[in-house]
């Protein structure tokens, strides 16, 4: 192409250049269209890997929704509390597999009350086997701290194993993504799922604790342990996430231990002086009912814990536990 050609562009050349430019734009657009991911990153999770936590609840029995047993001996109070709801036979059938989800959040000694009492866990394991005829009981949690240390230092691992349970520690492959229908926070979020996918029944056991962010940590907050990922982001909306957990998890039975209550500096505590003896243990088929009574052990009212009201509005049950006619007993 000479200088003259440079200065003049004829129709053919113009069309050729326009055609090339058009083809370039079309190819770039097609490649972009091909590579565009409308959904965004999902951490490699395929649709087929999304799960729904099974419903572990049992048929409701009016008048046997919640029991409150006063006494200092956890073995006696938990035996009585379960008996008052119809016995463990109501909840565990022969040959079934049971998952127990205790609060093992911290690598902390049992006496500090930041984790559930090991002997209480062991007694529920024993009941599942001896009276319920369970084929297998697993004890599992996804703690805040290193799981192995949590189960070891809290004494829960040893006590559960001694009672015949299999202690299951979380592994990366145990987490699957789930969404709560109508939920605003639990949307395509990883949960600790695998151990619960293979069991027939689910029992939650947790102590009553003060909680710096939530106000109180009880049976509904115990399900926070099922959340994977950077679950701390939910602390920004702690009331909503606890209410959503109450909708997500439908346990067979929950046990709320108020024998010793962490009144201050929760959820970690650290000093025995953070604890106050309340000598109460609650068993219930409904988390919201248990927690609505449990808050009184922290000298709180239902209205002090917004997540209770949120859970009630969402349909998780009633905060008016009195209307459920709690069965109250004392053991010496």
């Amino acid at each position: 192409m000479n200088e003259q050609d440079d200065k003049k562009l004829n129709r053919r050349q113009l069309l050729a250049r326009a055609g090339k430019a058009g083809i370039s734009i079309a190819v770039a657009g097609a490649i972009s269209k091909l590579l565009y991911d409308a959904v965004g990153p999902r951490g490699g999770v395929e649709d087929t890997e999304r799960v729904t936590l099974p419903d572990f609840s049992v048929q409701p029995r009016p008048g046997q929704v919640i029991s409150i047993v006063n006494g200092s001996d956890r073995i006696k109070t938990v035996d009585k509390a379960i008996e008052l709801l119809g016995g463990i036979e109501r909840f565990v059938k022969p040959g079934e597999t049971v998952a127990i989800k205790p609060n093992v959040a911290f690598a902390s000694p049992a006496m500090l009350g930041a984790t559930v009492n090991p002997e209480l866990v062991a007694e529920v394991v024993r009941l599942c086997y001896s009276r319920g005829g369970a084929k297998k009981v697993i004890v599992t949690d996804n703690p805040i701290n290193d799981p192995e240390s949590c189960f070891a230092l809290s004494g829960i691992g040893k006590a559960a194993s001694a009672a015949g349970a299999e202690v299951v520690l979380p592994k990366a492959q145990f987490f699957k993504h789930t969404s709560l229908a109508g939920g605003k926070l639990i949307k395509d979020w990883p949960i600790f799922f695998e151990p619960f996918s293979k069991v027939d029944k689910l029992i939650g056991i947790t102590p009553v604790k003060d909680h710096h962010r939530a106000g109180a940590s009880m049976t509904m907050k115990n399900w926070y342990g099922l959340l994977g990922g950077r679950r701390n982001i939910f602390h920004q909306d702690i009331n909503s996430i606890i209410a959503e957990l109450a909708m997500l998890v439908k346990p067979t039975l929950v046990i709320l231990d108020g024998t010793e209550v962490m009144m201050t500096n929760g959820p970690t505590g650290g000093s025995i002086s953070d604890l106050r003896r309340a000598n109460a243990l609650i068993a219930s088929t409904n988390c919201l009912a248990a927690d609505s009574y449990g808050c009184s052990l922290l000298d709180m009212k239902v209205s002090d814990l917004p997540y209770l009201e949120k859970a009630e509005k969402a349909g998780a049950g009633t905060t008016d536990y009195e209307s459920l006619k709690p069965i109250i007993a004392t053991v010496s």
Binding site: P41, G43, P143, D146, P170, Q173, P190, G228, G229, R230
Partner: peptide, 18 residues
């Protein structure tokens, strides 16, 4: 330098210890 956790994906979903 992509932070998957912004999308609810756990960096280490097993232990919670990142």
């Amino acid at each position: 330098d992509y932070d998957v956790t912004r999308y609810g994906v756990p960096p280490s979903p097993g232990s919670g210890e990142t």
